[in-house]
């Protein structure tokens, strides 16, 4: 066993889970869902939670439903659930395309959508998706239910505005318009690695011009977010190289780039320019 000692709790109901979480949250209790991020960092002892509240047996958290306005994704829904479109709305195809870029097959069989959001890795594909589409996060605790918009949810690298004792019980993704278009592109050095930059774009065409444009960027800054400067270059314009390039340039200039040993600030800006443009190009395919 590589991790530091911990106690694992296995509640069967949501109430039981929230009660347990309320009890242990103060002693560094953490939720265990798919474990694909938490368990490795525990194995390195970078995280040493004293308690794990394992929600894999909790009834009702596997909800995955399209109510005509939102797609609701419960805390136990795995990445692999999106291998095929889960709704006829274009959002279904978007999620399927994005899911293919998440790590490797065994990880997608185990890791969860909500777990990715709660973990808040800057390069997470689902965090980017939530930020781009203005998802609504539904946090539950013994004190009640709280809805948090994506732009108020992420709080830097691996940090969110979830409060102690709160479980991210479900996420609601707004459906796209029936004629909505999307494009996605990410760059990593090896297949399946964390994205060194990724972009997701959605829009509609109105008389040949792009409208309701959303451009989200992940892996480039401490948290994924929409880039209004890039959106401004696209709204009202015809899709095509000139507009796409301008959006890439605008995004590249707008960011506060993350830096690490394989990506300095200049290189990150290079990548942002490319992933934004290529995501937009992908929307035309």
């Amino acid at each position: 066993m590589k991790p530091a000692p911990f106690i694992r709790h296995v509640p069967r109901t949501l109430d039981e889970a929230l009660a347990t979480l309320a009890e242990v949250a103060g002693e560094d209790g953490r939720i265990l869902a798919g474990g694909q991020s938490l368990v490795p960092i525990m194995a390195f002892r970078l995280a040493k939670p004293a308690h794990l509240v394992d929600i894999n047996e909790v009834a009702g958290l596997d909800k995955l439903a399209d109510d005509g306005k939102f797609l609701t994704i419960g805390a136990r829904v795995r990445h692999a659930a999106f291998h095929e479109p889960v709704t006829a709305n274009p959002l279904g195809r978007l999620l399927t395309y994005v899911a293919r870029h998440i790590a490797h097959y065994p990880i997608r069989m185990r890791g969860t959508f909500c777990g990715s959001l709660a973990h808040a890795d800057p390069s997470s594909e689902w965090c980017l998706t939530a930020a781009t589409l203005d998802a609504v996060m539904v946090a539950k605790s013994v004190k009640g239910t709280r809805e948090i918009r994506a732009d108020g949810f992420f709080d830097g690298i691996m940090s969110t505005h979830l409060k102690e004792g709160e479980l991210l019980a479900e996420v609601r993704l707004p459906l796209l318009p029936p004629d909505g278009k999307f494009g996605f592109y990410e760059f990593s050095r090896r297949a399946g690695d964390f994205a060194m930059s990724a972009a997701l774009a959605t829009y509609r065409l109105d008389g040949g011009k792009m409208t309701d444009v959303r451009v989200g960027l992940g892996g480039a800054e401490a948290s994924p977010r929409r880039i209004p400067e890039a959106e401004a270059e696209l709204n009202g314009k015809a899709p095509g190289d000139a507009a796409f390039r301008a959006a890439g340039e605008a995004a590249s200039a707008a960011i506060e780039p993350l830096e690490d040993h394989q990506t300095d600030a200049e290189y990150r800006r290079d990548l942002v320019k490319v992933v934004v443009r290529r995501a937009l190009e992908h929307s035309l395919i």
Binding site: R189, Q262, T263, D264, E266, Y267, D270
Partner: peptide, 8 residues
């Protein structure tokens, strides 16, 4: 020959 080095 990493992408970062080539881009630089």
């Amino acid at each position: 020959a990493t992408p970062q080095r080539i881009r630089a």
